[in-house]
Design a protein around this nucleic acid. Sequence first.
DNA 1: GTTTAAATTTTGTCATGCCAAAATTATAGC
DNA 2: GCTATAATTTTGGCATGACAAAATTTAAAC
Lengths: 234, 234
Amino acid sequence: MQTQTIEDYLKAIYELGREDPGEKLTTTALAERLGVSPATVTGTLKKLARLRLVVHKPYRGVELTDAGRKIALEVIRHHRLIELYLQQALGVPWDRVHEEAEKWEHVLSEELEDRIDALLGHPTQDPHGAPIPARDGTIAQPECVRLSELAPGQTAVIAEVSDHDPELLRYLGERGLYPNVSIELIAKEPFGGPLTVRVGRQGREWALGPEAARHVFVTEVVQEGGPSHEAEKE
Amino acid sequence: MQTQTIEDYLKAIYELGREDPGEKLTTTALAERLGVSPATVTGTLKKLARLRLVVHKPYRGVELTDAGRKIALEVIRHHRLIELYLQQALGVPWDRVHEEAEKWEHVLSEELEDRIDALLGHPTQDPHGAPIPARDGTIAQPECVRLSELAPGQTAVIAEVSDHDPELLRYLGERGLYPNVSIELIAKEPFGGPLTVRVGRQGREWALGPEAARHVFVTEVVQEGGPSHEAEKE
DNA sequence: GTTTAAATTTTGTCATGCCAAAATTATAGC
DNA sequence: GCTATAATTTTGGCATGACAAAATTTAAAC
């Protein structure tokens, strides 16, 4: 296991904080995400607190300061720009860009960041639909809900999918569940059973595992049932 | 100073060995190149010897084993492919590609190496004229001599220039001294004084500092004086 | 063959990132 | 409010990569 940097910690804190907004961010959750022991996390948290990058209330959880969030968003900007660049310029399939970007995000200079950003036309989304933070550390965070929480009959547009699990990404890709594709929830088994969805307007119907549906985030619920006036983006 | 990896050591040993072929490679020279103390180099050399990547005769110098050379050449292949890619695909000027590649060479996966190699058309030279090792760890090393060692009247083709000093690279670039450009030595002051050269056939004449001339390597000496029958490569 | 200077290695120490085990704290159930 | 359990932090220790200073070896000068 390679040793984790301050940047890795800040990024993980930011991401876990977003995944459970409002919840306290625990040492154990961070330890699992980073692949280190809780004891190690506590030690690093004390260091980060000394550097004024996080506020750590012992036994009470941790959160980022403005300075810490700024650094986290810089790393995430690098990560997402690289993901998109690897896909667009080098043809890396979307289930593998995350892993590569994990390494490249730490060695990207500001100059190259700018060149890549310009070459891609100042993009706002990475291949998984996640927003790319601006250079000044701001980020657009559109409202969205899990696909698994939609009601049958509702139509929505896929905003973002989790990028951590390559297998999930291949599963979603085979079914056409990419960002900006519209999706209609046809039916939903109770007690967390599989969903039936129609992917794309007049598109194919698929059964979808409930676990996968929890990792797909949708937005812009157009209307319940009936035909839409929105043009389909593919 | 960031901490040096095994890869950095092997690459430095390979490069210093090539710069002074036949000479023994000293601990101090390695220490200077790597920016660490001689004591640290001795320690790491013992570790590399234990891994059978170098042969270290205490007080007598060090050299690479076949296994060590293989790894060094893999890193150098990464480095040079990335230098060329940064220049060709991202427009990074040739005096800055080296510094960037120093960081990127360590995070390049085999998959991306292949994609970049193919995208560049399986190139054989980096922007400074250095040969790019093949995947199997072989490298073409054409004969060449320092420009400073040419005799007045001799014509040659620039094979390679040192890539470590950005200022030198800008100096050479301003005068058109790129790899594959032909160059004629018009005159040479004694005692290591400046040289007068003509760059490119029917090209401009320049005075060239002796230090710069020691970092330009030329090959394919066509003939002394007189017109050439070779076509000019630009 | 000494002597001496320079290069090299050895020794001892420090800082860092990690972990397991022990101690502490929070919290949920009673 | 207690108590048990789980989460968290503290403690002590290990490995690594770095350095300065001391000891050793080489090699050059005499």
